[in-house]
Design a binder for these strands. Structure first.
Lengths: 386, 386
DNA sequence: AAAACTTTGTTTAACCAATATACAAAGTCT
DNA sequence: AGACTTTGTATATTGGTTAAACAAAGTTTT
């Protein structure tokens, strides 16, 4: 739909601008907001009055004077409502209850025995129900539910394809919206993780971010211009099936030499491979005690991670790369070879200001990101590009 | 800079909306524009009156009645001004004079003997000067110059790095703006080609496009959401140096197994390779007459093109892939193996609606795209995203 | 051919959000 | 104590969109 301009749009733009300025800079005075946004003081006053009326912003008494009248400090009211963030993993369901500022209020997990849709949905409903029951009273109550899923999701919240769950065309959003009567956002697990790191983790304020979720497979969340990029049908970033050896091992996807065959937990499945264990936490323990096979394998995975990351750098030219997912636990052994390969292989101009870090939110990044997507859906966001 | 909303912004948004609606749908009536944009009839009338005053839109007499008063048809005034589009190639400089609708009015070429900056700039100035002299009189005259360059360009029009020219940090925009005193836009050659195909060629109206320029190297122009995507420093899309054989041939870029070593004209440089010729036009002639070596080589290049294209599909999830550049001439021999590899290797959901075509504008795509970038810079473009 | 209906485009008055300006309030500095 | 600063509010103005009425110019029905 085309967007036309009128006074209502102007108000929406400015109100959103003021709200998000307060949200990301609180405590802050009206005068400071006026200065930061470029809006007139009177305009800010009016909009703040409305936001206070909506209980999204609160006044928190006077602040420090800077040589004149003391400012009246404004806070974003994180407690105006709550959201539930969920992550659907292969063997486990995790959930958080968050306030509107992305702070975790409650945390809960449940094991998943199988991937039958009715069973999984039932478990999800139980978990969400528990969270909703545990939510503190607030003006808006539960304002949304966000879910991170290991698979492709379209723009309507339908899980198109989740190979590790054996799901196809599951309208998860409709199922959960019907059950709880609140807005539900469904996101790919890597996309949610990217949102989490962007807003609350290692990538705050970054404009062009590449988030690599390395675990049982490899997925990536791509942030372009501060926004999540989703392809034509809402499921870009399936980079795990990028060919890095054109004549390599055949993959279940139909292609050959896919990245995730060399740089994810799928490497543990190779029958002949000498390894002291076949799960990442155990291998990390072995590596910590200096076990040679574990060290060699992490070195190999780090190198192959670097090769794939180099390809993505040359295509996307990000400012920052964040490695997340289960393998981020192995940072001490993966980080070195990964950075070496990238430094050796990228073009000189890319090297200048590129940083590579590992997740700060650890296993919670996806849940927090999913919860945040629900928050943003509630608060609304609008921007003008020239 | 943050953009705030006020009435001036509203007018800009709506005027731009009306202008571009007329530009892309002319001839069209005021009533139809009102219906298409959702703007009130009165608003459209007012804005059209201003656009007519600016000579960007003209009234072209009555159209067909649809059961009532005959509409007064409006045209976008392509002849309100002209732009010069330039392509800087390795051995040649090409230029077009275009109207605001991207129609070619004049065309000119000049050979390039070497890549010394002063010499190249002098040749460019000569060519641009000739074009400006040949421009028909128009209300706004020459409104801009657009240049497509084989290298990385930053957001200020500085050529950061053009390996095939031996250029580094050339502020081409400043040089040409000083010489001609009109706005100059500098773009990467592949980005310009993508813009050309998007607006006037094989990719009209496509939202998510991947344009592959395969010639002396490989570059790609990425259109996301109908807009050109440029990375953090304005030079994404250097996909030619994507690794497709992790232990492959070393490349001049420092990496190994880069895509363009297997799927561009750089393959002709392999000493031992049995080939009847070492340029694309000659090889095409040989292939046409059934020469076995030429056929085998095109088959190999098509296959490797497909492998790289598959990687990009899995990352970007485009709706359409357009192959352009010098190698697009060899479509009859490249197209088959390329499509076969892609069909074999992409994920099932990608295959559903993905199309692969070859350039419609041929060698002129880049120039037309560069010219169009200059047109858009003149007309202005503004959009609101919710 | 007259009347009724349709479609196109303009005129008018009303609305409303941002703004500049003046002003009030509450502080600091000399 | 007086001058200056900073913060926040009140008021009148501006300017763009809009709904509604209207005028103009056509087609369709009777």
């Amino acid at each position: 739909m085309k967007v036309t301009g009128d006074q209502a749009l102007v108000k929406k733009i400015n109100k959103s601008l003021v709200l998000h300025t307060i949200r990301t800079h609180s405590p802050v005075s009206r005068a400071k907001v006026s200065e930061m946004t470029g809006l007139n003081k009177a305009t800010v006053s009016n909009l703040v009055a409305e936001l206070c009326g909506q209980e999204l912003v609160t006044e928190a008494g006077p602040g420090e004077s800077s040589g004149g009248r003391k400012p009246l400090m404004l806070h974003f009211n994180r407690m105006a409502g709550t959201v539930v963030g969920l992550e659907l993993r292969i063997r486990q369901l995790s959930a958080v209850l968050c306030d509107l500022g992305g702070h975790i209020l409650q945390e809960l997990e449940a094991p998943l025995d199988n991937h039958e849709l009715p069973y999984v949905v039932e478990q999800m409903k139980k978990l969400i129900g528990t969270m909703i029951a545990a939510a503190p009273p607030s003006p808006y109550g539960i304002v949304g539910i966000g879910v991170g899923v290991p698979g492709m999701v379209d723009e309507h919240g339908v899980v198109l394809f989740a190979p590790n769950l054996g799901w196809e065309m599951v309208d998860l959003r409709a199922i959960l919206e019907e059950a709880f009567a609140v807005p539900v956002t469904i996101d790919n697990e890597a996309n949610a993780g990217a949102q989490g790191e962007l807003n609350f983790g290692a990538a705050r304020g970054v404009r062009h971010l590449l988030y690599i979720s390395a675990g049982s497979g490899i997925g990536s969340g791509i942030i372009i211009g501060g926004e999540l990029y989703k392809g034509a049908r809402g499921y870009a970033g399936e980079t795990g099936h990028m060919t890095i050896e054109s004549g390599g091992t055949p993959c279940s996807c139909g292609s050959r030499g896919c990245w995730e065959l060399y740089a994810s937990e799928r490497t543990y499945d190779q029958p002949g491979l000498p390894l002291p264990a076949r799960t990442t936490p155990e291998l990390v323990r072995h590596a910590r005690s200096g076990q040679a096979d574990a060290l060699r394998h992490f070195d190999s995975m780090g190198t192959y991670l670097g090769i794939g990351v180099t390809n993505l750098i040359n295509s996307f030219n990000p400012e920052l790369i964040v490695i997340g997912g289960a393998l981020s636990e192995a940072e001490p052994w993966l980080g070195g070879p990964l950075r070496d390969v990238v430094a050796e292989r990228t073009l000189p101009y890319h090297k200048q200001q590129l940083e590579i870090t590992f997740s700060k939110l650890g296993g919670k990044g996806t849940m927090i990101g999913a919860a945040f997507a629900a928050v943003m859906h509630f608060l609304g966001d609008i921007r003008v590009t020239i």
